[in-house]
């Protein structure tokens, strides 16, 4: 049987997110017939970007003011209706907070189970996924003969190249949209730094950094080498940095080429977020810190001496 796969586009501020390209790469391992569904308001540019993703056959754009903000309760019925009309066998979304919020609602409306965090594909219904914060990997088999809904663990895939040329067509659905959920606001820290989830280099700070002011040296060093900045939960909880910088089981799961962390002890919940990093460098003043068990390169010492020295050495 051939499979028809629908990938739900994640986008923000009129831009297609890299996570969508990663989900398309995963979809490519399931079958060759891949469509992307863009639910947006004024989404033409997003749809055009999706059409450039290699491997995508068609992009469908549901343009509707109701889709301006990504609310699962509004989007899910449209996706379920569209997938049924189009005869799709699989619906995939990225495991960003957008996909995590949305895909289970899609699955439940379709009354099918869902596979979270696909990290490897063995067949159209058989996947690997992490459990226990990535401390175990299970191979799971989902029921065949019904819609398969899954989220893709973005850190496990590189984004599809932007050299394709799929068609873009407007689409509508018959879905009834609820009015019980209203968008109020988005507090979003603007930053010129690379995006944490897709950056090739990430510099992170933990409780050891000590304060919001002290984080300045972490930012400065990151800027010097063109890195994004992340943090441990302890650093977020203490108010040194905003929540969207948290790396780990309950924060962002990232796979940069270089992950350098300062003053982070290496709790399993933090490590869950960095297992796929290329090279992990740990700087900690405690030689017994568990982070050294997983680090590729470790240096014992005081971050307040080491960061300035690093800064000078790369200047």
């Amino acid at each position: 049987m051939s499979h028809k796969i629908l990938v739900i586009a994640d986008h923000h501020d009129g831009q297609l997110l890299d996570a969508t390209g990663r989900a398309v790469t995963c979809a490519g391992q399931l079958g060759a017939d891949i469509d992307v569904l863009v639910l947006a308001h004024d989404g033409q540019a997003i749809a055009d970007a999706a059409a450039r993703l290699a491997g995508v056959a068609r992009v469908h754009l549901v343009d509707n003011p109701a889709n301006e903000h990504p609310m699962a309760a509004t989007l899910a019925p449209q996706i379920v209706a569209f997938a049924a009309d189009g005869g799709y066998s699989h619906v995939l979304g990225p495991n960003t907070t957008f996909g995590k919020d949305l895909m289970p609602r899609v699955a439940a409306l379709a009354d099918v189970p869902m596979v979270t965090d696909v990290m490897a594909v063995h067949g159209p219904y058989e996947f690997d996924r992490p459990i226990y914060a990535g401390n175990a990997i299970t191979t799971v088999r989902a029921p065949e003969g019904q819609l398969l809904v899954a989220s893709v663990r973005c850190a496990s895939y590189i984004a599809a190249a932007a050299n394709g040329h799929a068609s873009v067509a407007p689409a509508t659905t018959e879905a009834e949209l609820p009015d019980h959920t209203r968008f109020v606001s988005l507090e979003h820290a603007e930053s010129d730094r690379p995006d944490l989830q897709t950056a090739s280099k990430v510099i992170s700070g933990g409780r050891g950094v000590g304060s919001e002011e002290n984080f300045r040296i972490v930012y400065d060093f990151a800027d010097k080498i063109g890195a994004a900045v992340g943090a441990s939960r302890a650093a977020v909880d203490a108010g040194y940095v905003p929540n969207d910088m948290q790396v780990g089981q309950t924060g962002k799961i990232i796979s940069p080429e270089l992950y350098m962390c300062f003053g982070i002890s290496g709790a399993i919940q933090h490590l869950a977020g960095i297992k796929d990093a290329g090279t992990i460098v740990a700087i900690n003043k405690d030689p017994e810190a568990p982070i050294f068990e997983i680090a590729d390169i470790g240096l014992v010492g005081d971050l307040f001496e080491i960061i300035p020295a690093l800064d000078a050495a790369v200047s």
Binding site: G134, A136, T139, V140, P143, I280, I297, G298
Partner: peptide, 17 residues
Amino acid sequence: IETVTTKAPPKRGGGVM
């Protein structure tokens, strides 16, 4: 959704200090 098997994640290569 059936669990076929559960295994340990791949170990990262040994690091250096």
